[in-house]
Design a protein around this nucleic acid. Structure first.
Lengths: 230, 230
DNA sequence: TACTGTGAATGAGTTCACAGCC
DNA sequence: GGCTGTGAACTCATTCACAGTA
């Protein structure tokens, strides 16, 4: 897996007990977003209940695994019937911390940064882009879809007043660790990193690394090691 | 984790035994790309050997885990010294199937597709983009960095002669499953999917799903659950 | 009847701790 | 001396199988 997390900043969200008891195991946590995505799909379609079996089939997971995971929120499943879709969507958003909104900045408006600004999926889950920081002076002062582009050198000057919790880093690998550390010093809570370098060692901030080349290598491995008996 | 794999097509690569004995466990396999990335970094810098400890620190992993993983290739580590960087790079590329080249097509030239075409990381790891397929007629006939853009309706007509093994899918969620199934029928071996839907259930092809919104939700979860004692 | 919830069993992955070798 | 390689212990995750309940 291509991600790690650590950090110590408080969020604007009140983390009331969404879970039956104790904490959510990491393996389950990494699947919550997938469950939420599928359940929102059913919610839009007007489906009121969903069975562990059909959810599992859509995601390529076993029904018992789905039940084990969802039982942590235990109150949305009815024996003989299935799970209440709307209730689970609410519980998952709360557990993930994506009830409410997160203010976000994008650092780096290259190819990938440009695509990310326009990506609709982020806004839909409550992530609001407040500003873009970029080194290329010819872009500074412009805006993308109404989001202003600032000079990266003004990060320390401007970030505090923007009141953001998350940063999306889409800069070259050699600049990523330095920027991550500046963002951590500014009190950012989380960084979604697309640079091909691990930021998990940055202190005081939660990080998730997404390396597109690594994902493609995983695919190559899966192809080379694919089992001829499927 | 946001990916799955399955499939049954042969690749152009000869999978000679790169590993000491048996197969590579999935958990280790998912880290090989990260190891390769870091080792290539040291190789470019002229470092000849690397210790499990320093590699671990760069990736946020324990030294014993690194040793366990790399011992599978057992012949590159020397006690008291460390691992031979160049040798390991070769072994990892072979194990991942990224020695040699993979011919690739991109399906969908929207925001994300555009960024992916220009992304340098793919070419560097031996993935060569042969063609782009897109539904928007105003783009068909043009090219991006010399790569031709074809009408998606001509997929069945044109793909066989392109001799590609991999497809990168960057289309809306509702179109992804249908396209995945067409690609599988055409004999594609692997699909890297960016649509927010699981393609792991597509038969006869290895798939890796990357859902950017899910990654951002993982980050939100990590922030909300970050331990105040770090 | 048809599903969920969950103890118990199994399996996978990680860490410990130290022997083995350079 | 300082590292790797690895048996053994441990922890975490998944699956099995069935009791419990709408």
């Amino acid at each position: 897996m291509d991600e790690t997390a650590s950090g110590d900043h408080e969020s604007p969200h009140t983390a009331l007990p969404t879970v039956k008891s104790g904490t959510i195991p990491p393996a389950t946590a990494s699947r919550l977003g997938l469950y939420l995505r599928e359940l929102q799909h059913f919610l839009r379609g007007g489906t009121e209940t969903i069975k562990s079996n059909s959810l599992g089939r859509r995601l390529g997971l076993s029904d018992s695994q789905i039940r084990r995971d969802l039982a942590l929120f235990g109150e949305f499943g009815k024996r003989g019937v299935g799970y209440n879709v709307a209730g689970l969507v609410g519980a998952l958003r709360k557990a993930l911390g994506t009830d409410g909104q997160w203010s976000t900045v994008l650092i780096g408006l290259g190819n990938l940064g440009n695509a990310l600004v326009r990506y609709r999926g982020f806004g839909q889950q409550g992530f609001v882009l407040r500003a873009i920081f970029e080194a290329d002076r010819s872009k500074v002062g412009l805006n993308v879809d109404g989001v202003p582009i600032h000079d990266i050198s003004r990060l320390e000057e401007l970030l505090p007043s923007l009141d953001v919790q998350m940063a999306i880093l889409a800069v070259p690998a050699d600049q990523a660790p330095g920027l991550a550390s500046r963002l951590a010093d500014l009190g950012i809570s989380g960084i979604l990193n697309f640079a091909p370098v691990s930021l998990s060692t940055t202190r005081g901030v939660a990080t998730v690394d997404v390396d597109l080349a690594v994902e493609l290598q995983r695919l190559a491995f899966a192809v080379v090691n694919s089992d001829r008996s499927s």
